[in-house]
Amino acid sequence: MKKVILSLAVIAAMGLTSCKNEAKQAGETATAETEATQSDIAMASAAFGVRGNCGMCKRTIEKAANGVDGVASANWDVAKKKIDVSFDDTKTDVAAIHNAIAASGYDTEQVAGNLDAYENLPECCKYDHAMEMNQSGTKASEDPHHGHNH
């Protein structure tokens, strides 16, 4: 009689173990589906003007934009004075990206660059505050009357 009870207990324990494994697998599948849904979130994109001069400016501007939580990519075009940004609009918005770039010392179409940060930029990065932004890519004509308007 003891052997029968022991056998039933072992079989029952095995049955419980397999149920737990099935439940665990079902949980893992649900987690995988949730992760897939999160990666399917549509990214928003924006393009706007940012003043700057050179490759050092490019690194600083892109670093500032990429530092905003939710920004997936940022690419500033030196010739066009324009940045293209992709971001998760559930985590951030365009205004936050403008503010981050301005805080690094660079003017955007919507926000003037922080003057203290601007003063700390390398000489080659001190751009003309009247320069055109979001250009077509052709070189703007040089106007000797445009200076730094602080």
Rank of each mutant, 00 (worst) to 15 (best):
D84G: 09
L8Q: 14
E109G: 09
I83E: 08
G49K: 05
A74M: 03
Q38H: 13
T17D: 13
A36C: 00
K58L: 00
A117H: 06
G67E: 08
N53T: 06
A12V: 12
D69F: 05
V4T: 13
A140D: 13
A103C: 05
G52S: 02
N21A: 14
L115P: 11
N114L: 01
A103G: 02
A23D: 13
K82F: 02
I83C: 00
A44P: 01
A47R: 06
S7T: 11
D40A: 12
I41N: 09
E132D: 10
F87C: 06
K20F: 13
K126R: 08
T92F: 05
D77S: 11
V50N: 02
T29Q: 14
M131F: 05
P122G: 10
A9E: 10
S141K: 15
K2G: 14
K139S: 13
S73P: 03
M131W: 05
V85S: 01
M1S: 12
V68G: 03
D143I: 04
C125M: 10
A112G: 13
V85Q: 04
H129G: 10
A79E: 12
L16M: 15
S18Q: 15
A47Q: 07
T31A: 15
K20Y: 14
S45N: 08
T31L: 13
A47V: 00
I5L: 15
N21Y: 15
G137V: 01
E62V: 07
T108W: 00
E132L: 09
N99R: 08
A23R: 14
T31D: 14
K126V: 07
H98Q: 07
V78A: 12
C57A: 04
A72I: 13
A102R: 00
E28V: 06
K81Q: 08
L16T: 15
N114G: 01
E109H: 03
V85Y: 07
N149C: 12
V85N: 00
G55Y: 02
